[in-house]
Each structure stands twice: as structure tokens, then as C-alpha cells.
Amino acid sequence: MLPWNYGFHFGAASYIFLGAFYTVLIVVATTIINALWRARRDLSKGKVEDIRWHSDFHDLSAADRSCRHVLTGEFTSRECPHAFDCRECATHAKLIALHPLAQAAEAEEDIFGMSFPLDRMYHRGHTWARPEADGTVTVGLDDLGARLLGTPDAVDLPGLGSHVHANGTAFRIHRREADVRILSPVDGEVVETGGVDRGFFLRVKPLNGLMDMRHLLRDAEVKPWLMRELERLQLALTMEGASVPSLADGGVPVSDIAAAYPKTDWDAVCGEMFLEP
């Protein structure tokens, strides 16, 4: 290998062989170092939650990644290229400018026996965000989310003053064997924490005065989305071994769905529904 080694001689074969070997070593080392360096950069820039979501999103089944404009029928099929962050999406901006969303009828607040008030916007991870009069935004679990988790055994809420990011973890809920992270619908600083009994979980203050909520579902989008979610729930329940198909009153999800399916892998069902595969 080295000129002072006994038996050393340079020939074309040595050049080719050692050249290829070192190229491979350099490529492999560069790849690793590059990945480490990028990881360090991500950590220092606080992109962990963003990456966690992107990684989760990547693992969702193709059907679960469909664009919101598929829900409204503008596309027959389209996979979201922005991990559900429509704020970055040019297509969404164009479409929303072309066809502003119709106001949903007031009666639609009650969808399949569940309450989805239209005074707020919905995140696809079953949370809602409601702008409050004081400029803050309250964040809570939507009705389906609440029914899925029933009365939580424990809730890990973020500390006051900490920041949450849209599609990042807002808080964690434990219920029976289920342990899921709940995605935050908005960016902001936590100014108050609530709980199940208070009707909301977080009250957040916009980070720079303005709360961008373009990526959240609203009005006429909610019903088709929920239809799809119930389909997904049915599928998830079947997949996770729900053997008793009765949902108390003829199909309306009961207030505590988990209790109705004692033998089901509830962690998996919740993972599916809260977009944490």
C-alpha cells in the first residue's frame, strides 16, 4: 500500500484498485458525515418536531396522504406534497382563489351525531383551532378525537411559554394502552393550558401577531373529511381486530369508542386516526 512496504510496486492495477477502494471509502464516509452534519443542524435549528411529522407523514398510507382538494372533489386523487401544510402549497392558493369555500349549512355542525361547530377550523390530526376575541387561539380535540380517546388516563401538556408548531406535537394523551401524540394545528406560544373538562387543551398566542391558518379545514370541507375519517376508522377497527361491530345507537360513534372495543389494539387505532403510524 505504501511505498516503503516490502513488495510495493505501482502499476495500473494498483491505481485502479486502490483508487476504487478509496473512492468508495470517501463516498461512504461523506454520506455518513453529511447525514450527521445535517442531523446536527436540524437539532440546533429545532426542527425535530417538523421532521417527526415528515417522517410520520412519509409512513402514512397513500390514501391517508390525500390532498384536501380531493375531499372537496376538485381532484379525483392527489397526494399532498407538503405534508398537510397548505401554507406552502401554490396549488392550494390557486384553487382557493378560484373556488372560495362555500359556507356550510348550520345544520352540518352535527355530523353523524358528532358535534363539529363551524366557528373553528380543523386539523387533519383531529384537533381544532378557534380564534378567540383576545387574539389568542384555543386548541382542542375534535369530537371524533375525544370519542376515540374517551376520558384520558393522563395528558402531557406543554409548559407555559413553550412554543408549539403546526403539525408538531401539541400534547400527548394516554388512554388504556394507547399513547398518542396530538398534532398542533397552529404555531404559537402556549399561554394557558386546559384539559378535558375545560373544553380546550391549549391557548396559544401567535408568534408574530398573525396566526396563519390557511392549512386548516373549515366550512364545507369538514363533512367530506369526516366521512373519510369514519371510513378510515372502520378500516382501522377491522384491521385491529374489532370483533363487535355495534356502535351503540345504530352507527353513531359512542362517546367512548375504546370502551366498546375492549379487545381491539387501541393504540394502533389511535395511531392510525391521529396520523402517527
Binding site: V27, V28, I51, R52
Partner: peptide, 20 residues
């Protein structure tokens, strides 16, 4: 977090390793 981020970044480069 370190593992998560490293895995994510490494996975993006996996085609280089597949090629090598």
C-alpha cells in the same frame, strides 16, 4: 430526537449507499 433526525437525514441519502 437525535436518533429521529439522524434516521430521517440518513434515509434521504440511502440511494447513495444502495449505489455503492
Amino acid at each position: 430526537p437525535g436518533f429521529l433526525v439522524f434516521e430521517f437525514e440518513l434515509h434521504k441519502l440511502i440511494y447513495v449507499l444502495a449505489g455503492v
